[in-house]
């Protein structure tokens, strides 16, 4: 092969590999502009999850760019035609120790830094607010392919004539620690509210507590995130977050309507 052709080949391949970190980082930078980034977050714990994502992202980005650039450089540099032999080495003990120990420390740091946020969302449920695991605001009942909400009667019972049941639309108060009980009537579903950074599978036979505190009134998408059959793609719901006082009057109105019907 002529040396020009060989050089061109090396150049093309090098550029190809070089494009990976460059475009890779560039698309992440541009993603927000293109609408390919996290939706805004409207729950109290949402920002801490985003923060952890960012921390890992920076570690990952540095590692990614560093290792890819080394790879690109080594490829370009050492594919040069060269009559001498390769460096004859079978490794280096110190290097191995270094590049095992440093990532190990970083990874242990990553692991420990997750624990608090996870406990907040999934383990330590609010006990001081108006709603608790024993006394949730509502029960969410998933089934193929819809969501149903039940608000208990005044005694906190979820069975009986005074229970308010609403399909698809889940109305909750803002700035309140809302605890709900997630159930499924048939198969697995998953309760996913992107703006709350909240996801929890609904499992038939289980009652799983879930909590969030919405920080901003508005209407948000509720999405089923676990394959539940042919209609999985359209198992949508809506979360209406109302200001606290409006929620109270909304709930009272529902009660009235219920009694009016009887």
């Amino acid at each position: 092969m002529s040396s020009l052709k060989h050089f061109l080949l090396r150049a093309v391949i090098t550029l190809l590999f070089l494009a990976v970190p460059i475009l890779g980082v560039w698309t992440f930078v541009k993603a927000e502009e293109w609408g390919l980034w996290f939706p805004p977050t409207y729950s109290t714990y949402g920002p801490s999850i985003d923060f952890l994502f960012d921390v890992i992202m920076w570690m990952v980005a540095v590692t990614f760019v560093g290792t890819e650039l080394l790879l690109v450089w080594f490829f370009f540099r050492y594919s040069k035609k060269d009559a001498t032999r390769a460096t004859y080495t079978h490794g280096n003990h110190t290097l191995e120790m270094v590049w095992t120990a440093i990532p190990a420390l970083l990874l242990i740091f990553v692991a420990f830094s997750q624990m608090k946020a996870w406990s907040t969302v999934k383990i330590n449920f609010p006990e001081d607010g108006p709603y608790t695991v024993a006394k949730p605001l509502m029960e969410i009942y998933a089934s193929q392919f819809d969501w149903r909400v039940r608000y208990p009667d005044a005694q906190g019972n979820f069975e009986g004539a005074d229970v308010i049941e609403v399909p698809y639309d889940i109305t909750v108060p803002a700035d309140t620690k809302v605890v709900l009980r997630l159930k499924s009537r048939d198969v697995l579903h998953s309760f996913f509210v992107p703006v709350f950074r909240l996801k929890q599978d609904a499992v038939p036979g289980m009652e799983i507590p879930v909590w969030f505190e919405a920080t901003r009134p508005g209407d948000y998408d509720l999405i089923c995130a676990e394959l539940c059959g042919w209609g999985h793609y359209k198992m949508a719901g809506k979360i209406h977050v109302l200001p606290k006082d409006e929620f109270a009057s909304w709930l009272a109105k529902q009660r009235e309507n219920l009694y009016a019907k009887d």
Binding site: V20, G24, F38, S48, I49, L52, F53, I56, M57, M59, V60, T63, F64, T67, E68, L71, L107, V110, A111, Q114, A117, W118, V121, K122, P194, R197, L198, K199
Partner: peptide
């Protein structure tokens, strides 16, 4: 490298919620 690094996000439970 790409596949391995993205695994760290997924392994991190709070991030994996999303």
């Amino acid at each position: 490298i790409i596949g391995g690094l993205s695994g760290i996000w997924m392994a991190s439970t709070p991030v994996d919620i999303y």
